[in-house]
Structures are given as C-alpha cells and as structure tokens.
C-alpha cells in the first residue's frame, strides 16, 4: 500500500513552465525586448538608481502598458478555460465536455454581445455589466444543454455534443444578428469573436481577475467531491456527497470562470479540452490534482499560443483563438476516436 505522493512533482514542473512561459510572453512580440534590457528595466523599477536609455524607456512603456497586462490576462483566461473544462468533464463524466463544445462559451459570448451593444466596454460600467451578462448567458446555455443531453441517467457523447452544437449555433446566430446592428464597432467585435484580445492595458485584467480567481478557487476546492461523483450521482450520494449542491456549485463556478474569460478575450476554443486531457494522462483521474494542474497547464498553453499569435505573421496579429482551434480540433478528433474504443 503506497502512501499518497506528498511531493507535488507535477505541480513543480508546471509551476516552472508557467514562469518560463510568462517570461517569454513578456519579452517576445512584434518588438522583441532583449533580456539584458528587460532585467535592467526590472532593476530600475524595483531598486531604482539607474537611468534608462531612450530605447529602454520605450521598452519599459511596452512592458508595463502592453506586455505585462496582456500576459496576465492571457494567463488568467487560459487557467479559467482549462480548469472549467476539467470540471465540466468530471461533472458530466465525459471527456469531450469543453466550455466551447457544450455551448457554455457561446452562451457567454451572446451575453457579452448583448451587454456590449448596450454599452461597449470603454466605460467603467462595461467592466461590470459584461461579465455579469456573459455569466447569465453561460448559465442559460449550460442548463439548456444539460437538460437536452440527458438521456435517462447518463449523458452520452453524441447527445452532449449535439446539444452543445445546437445551443452554440443558436447563440452564435443571435450574436451575429446583434453584431450586424452594432455598426461601427463591427470589426472589433469580429476580432473579439475569433479570440483576439482587443482590450489592452490594465482595466480588463483587473476586471476579469476577481471572477476568474474566485471561480478557479471554488472549482479546485471541489476536487474530492468530483472524485466520488465519478461513481455516478446515486452512489456518490450513498457515500455522503451532497450531490445536488455540489453539482450546482460546480456549474455556477465553472460558468462564472468561463464567462469572465469569454467576456474579456472572446472565443478561444479547445483549451478546456486539450489541457485537462493531457494532464489526465500524466496524473490519473484524481480531480484534486487535475483541477489545480489544469489551471497551471491552461496558463502555459494559452501563453504559448498567444506568443505564436503575435509572432507568426508579425507585425500583424492572429487572433489567439485561431491558433488554439488549429491545434485543438485535430486533438479533439483524436480523443473522439479513442473514446469510441474504450473508456477514458
């Protein structure tokens, strides 16, 4: 009988991965900032007593006005999508449950657009109104998909994906309709829909962070209950899990996290599918590990995708959602093939 592994090996590896990805994301871009200048600027800000050259002043501006807030936002969004994806997979006991595939993100997108057509997020109210509206849309979508997909006591791959596609398409159609009437902001909104961050600076980071951090913390705290729920609702209840409460709490927390991510960075698909799936291969099915590691893994994955989005066609930027989809869709087909053959 083995003692539970006390040293979180994967936690250390993933933590180091986050640091490296953050560093890369800060220095790489349409303008690369040389490491030496980066550390000089850092020392100037922390210790002081150094005069920066004109070039370094320019770099400092790029760093603090653009790169660092963007890196933080991308980290938060990646962590949010991967953690809620992992939680949805555990809740639905289905490896294909991703915030996008099951329609939650589209619902959140519709919610955001509704809020944006009323108040584009230049104003302070937008930073409050949009996530809340996105959250309502996400909740509506997940409840709809859940009730549509449920056949008897189980949720099958096919019904889940079909219900997700139906709800997604419907909300996307409504979103497009609203966009056509939006007028001048159309281009921005389209880039947003493709997962391009059109929001720069610190405001979106500060607005998204509370929702995402609260949501992720809540989800991670439910790891053990999710483990027991892998036996199905009835057996979990027999083992003392308050199933209804836990399910509601997970849906609320996962939808909140997804909604905040979508509201501030648009449609970025497949992060919630790819990251937890890879981690499951490495650490097994213990959600006490999968969920926190997904947060770290999601941050790494999206940071790297975002660097690629900035560099591939520099100085032009590709919306990061395009990158994640190009990587994620083939991966999705691969999982689909596997799950046809055996359990996950």
């Amino acid at each position: 009988m083995k003692k539970e592994n006390t040293l979180p090996k994967w936690g250390l590896i993933l933590g180091a991965g986050v640091l490296i990805a953050v560093l890369l994301s800060i220095v790489l871009g349409s303008v690369n900032i040389p490491m030496r200048d980066f550390f000089t600027i850092l020392r100037e800000r922390v210790v002081g007593g150094i005069t920066l050259s004109a070039r370094q002043e320019k770099y400092a501006n790029i760093l603090f006005q653009l790169r660092i807030p963007r890196t933080l936002l991308v980290m938060l969004v990646g962590a949010a999508l991967a953690t809620s994806g992992g939680a949805y997979q555990g809740l639905f006991q289905n490896p294909l449950a991703d915030p996008y595939l099951i329609g939650v993100a589209s619902g959140a997108g519709l919610g955001s657009i509704i809020a944006m057509t009323i108040q584009w997020p230049q104003e302070l109210q937008g930073y409050f109104a949009i996530p809340i509206s996105a959250f309502s849309g996400a909740m509506l979508a997940v409840i709809l998909v859940y009730s549509l997909a449920k056949v008897g006591k189980t949720i099958h791959n096919t019904t889940l994906i079909l219900a997700g596609v139906a709800v997604s398409s419907f909300s996307n159609a409504l979103t497009s309709f609203l966009l056509l009437n939006a007028g001048g902001e159309l281009r921005r909104a389209i880039v947003w829909m493709m997962g391009g961050s059109t929001l720069v600076g610190w405001k979106p980071v500060l607005a998204a962070a509370p929702y995402i951090l609260v949501g992720i913390t809540a989800l991670i705290s439910m790891g053990y209950q999710l483990n027991v729920m892998q036996f199905g609702d009835e057996e979990a209840q027999q083992m003392g899990v308050p199933v209804k409460k836990v399910r509601l709490a997970i849906i609320l927390a996962a939808s909140l996290t997804t909604a905040a991510a979508v509201a501030f960075s648009g449609t970025i698909a497949f992060v919630g599918l790819v990251v937890p799936h890879i981690l499951r291969r490495m650490v097994g099915n213990d959600y006490r590990q999968i969920l926190p590691y997904s947060a770290l893994g999601g941050a790494i994955f999206l940071l790297l995708a975002d660097i690629a989005a900035r560099k591939l066609l520099a100085p032009q930027e590709i919306p990061v959602g395009v990158i994640t989809t190009l990587l994620g869709a083939p991966f999705f087909l691969y999982i689909l093939r596997r799950t046809k053959r055996k359990t996950w």
């Binding site: 009988m1 892998q230 036996f231 083992m239 097994g284 099915n285 359990t343 996950w344």
Partner: peptide
Amino acid sequence: PAGFTVQQIVSMGRTP
C-alpha cells in the same frame, strides 16, 4: 470509473 487505484476507491468509503 477509470483512473483510480483500488486504495483510492476504498478510501472513498470514508467520505462521510
């Protein structure tokens, strides 16, 4: 469910 050891599953009996 897949991905749990025997010991992990038996430990779930302690949940209450």
